[in-house]
């Protein structure tokens, strides 16, 4: 049998958990104590009736480590399901960011023009500031932020990644 690949790859993992106190601490504690890295982690209730939350973790590592992460998540008691979106078919991943840009004149106009190209929405404005709302892939948001940084970005808030598989398959 072939040895597992040592190449470090990014994986997006969806985890369905009981929506109860401490469950996030368990997941984060697991990553911290075993030295796995977390590139993004989001959580929200998704099923009121069954009291379930969905956690999306973006992490990276060689294949053996990723397999460990999934197995370790899988044995936490409040965890119902662990799904590695990266290996289980095609998936969508999105983030949302709120970007505050302060400035006057040319820069302000340029910020608005770029926001338009990126389909970012203005959700707040004053005579000297804008707050843009942008959603999309992590790369798209990174690119937008890089441009805004040059145009007077003073504040930034990002949700982290949420992800879902394409097609009919459910978690």
């Amino acid at each position: 049998m072939a040895l597992p690949s040592k190449e470090i790859r990014q994986h997006t993992i969806a985890v369905l958990v009981d929506n109860e106190a401490g469950v996030l601490a368990r997941v984060i504690g697991l990553f911290a104590s075993r030295g796995y890295n977390i590139e993004s982690l989001t959580v929200a209730a998704v099923d009121e009736a069954n009291n379930l939350s969905r956690i999306t973790v973006v992490t990276s590592g060689p294949e053996m480590v990723i397999e460990q992460i999934k197995a370790q998540l899988g044995r936490l008691v409040p965890v119902h399901k662990v799904s590695d979106l990266t290996t289980e078919g095609k998936f969508l991943s999105r983030e949302l960011a709120l970007v505050k840009v302060v400035g006057l004149g040319e820069k302000r106009v340029e910020a608005l023009r770029i926001a338009d190209i990126f389909r970012a929405r203005v959700v707040d404005s004053s005579t000297s500031s804008f707050v843009f709302e942008i959603s999309g892939s992590t790369e798209k948001i990174d690119a937008f932020i890089a441009l805004m940084r040059e145009l007077g970005m003073v504040d930034l808030s990002r949700t982290g990644v949420v992800a879902i598989s394409r097609g009919e398959r459910k978690l």
């Binding site: 040895l3 597992p4 053996m64 397999e67 460990q68 197995a71 370790q72 899988g74 044995r75």
Partner: peptide, 10 residues
């Protein structure tokens, strides 16, 4: 325990 598999030795 699946987490014991391939933890240190493949």
């Amino acid at each position: 325990d699946p987490s014991s598999i391939n933890k240190t030795v493949h």
